[in-house]
């Protein structure tokens, strides 16, 4: 095999872009774990529903995917707020195994509701066919936009969490719930904001996924596992680290595909996460806890 610059360039760009999309899927999962201490497997179910929502909007000629996404994001924000008040209100107090069962149950509900309404068929939005070409590297416009949106949202979220008062309050309650309560922060309300934000992120992830990939109901289960392993790799409650871990996994997958095969690349990814966890038990980018 010839590893010409264009082949390697294609590999690097594809890996980084796909990795950003993975990161976008994982960020919301990470945010809600960090703030509300909820292991929310159902996050992927929300992503799936957004994908179907955008699909329906596009197929019925109502809107372009990105326009549909623009509507979906605030809509999901509101829904997320409501969900944290109702379905998820008691979840953060549960033990790990209870949370896993509860949110996995919710994921099943969401996944199979999608199957009930939309059927088991594969869906795919016709791509624009527009591509950017440079030095033999060909990148689909949708993929570039998807990667850019993912990166942009990661940076924006990072800035929000580290610069704004609300963001700092959310981080404070993530670091130390008890302390945040003592400082007079309304942790319950912050959890609602976090869940709403995580839903909005799911909407973003769903919108960009729908423009690049094929999907069907069971995709939800696969995305849940993907988000979970990325977040475990990055460190559960560090949102930006989850994005970086997503990019890392995308790059790893692209490299493994080029050198061996995608199937072996997956084995290598799991083996890598396994090794990282043994060496750095709090995830790749998280500092060790101190007392």
């Amino acid at each position: 095999m010839e590893f010409s610059p264009s082949v390697i360039g294609q590999m690097l760009f594809t890996g980084a872009l796909m990795g950003s999309i993975y990161g976008a899927v994982a960020m919301g999962f990470s945010l809600i774990f960090g703030v509300a201490k909820i292991i929310n497997f159902a996050h992927a179910g929300v992503v799936l529903w957004v994908m179907y929502g955008v699909l329906v909007a596009v197929r019925s000629g109502v809107a372009h995917p990105y326009v549909a996404g623009l509507v979906a994001i605030p809509l999901c924000y509101v829904i997320g707020h409501g969900v944290q008040r109702t379905l998820m209100a008691r979840v953060s107090a549960m033990s790990d195994d209870m949370q896993i069962i509860y949110t996995f149950g919710l994921l099943l509900v969401l996944t199979y509701m999608a199957q009930f309404f939309f059927g088991p068929d594969v869906h795919f939005l016709p791509s624009s066919g527009l591509a950017v070409e440079f030095g033999g590297v060909v990148l689909q416009v949708e993929t570039i936009i998807a990667g850019a949106l993912a990166l942009g949202s990661a940076l924006a979220l990072h800035a929000f969490l580290s610069r704004t008062w609300l963001g700092k309050a959310i981080r404070a309650s993530a670091d130390n719930r008890r302390g945040a309560t003592l400082m007079g922060l309304d942790v319950v309300r912050l959890s609602r904001v976090a869940m709403a934000l995580s839903f909005a992120l799911a909407a973003l992830a769903g919108t960009i996924l729908v423009t690049v990939t094929t999907f069907y109901p069971l995709r939800g289960l696969e995305l849940a596992v993907l988000a979970f392993v990325i977040v475990v790799l990055g460190g559960m409650d560090n949102v930006f680290a989850s994005f970086v871990a997503g990019v890392l996994i995308g790059m790893f997958e692209a490299l493994g595909t080029l050198l061996f095969s995608p199937s072996i690349a997956h084995m290598a990814i799991y083996a890598m996460i396994f090794a990282v966890l043994l060496v750095r038990p709090q995830g790749l980018f998280r500092r060790r806890a101190t007392k």
């Binding site: 392993v229 559960m236 083996a271």
Partner: peptide
């Protein structure tokens, strides 16, 4: 290794 990281470790072991 504890808690959810432990769960994560076991999951990736089986998947690997």
């Amino acid at each position: 290794l504890r808690g959810i990281y432990f769960s994560g470790l076991t999951l990736v072991l089986a998947e690997a």
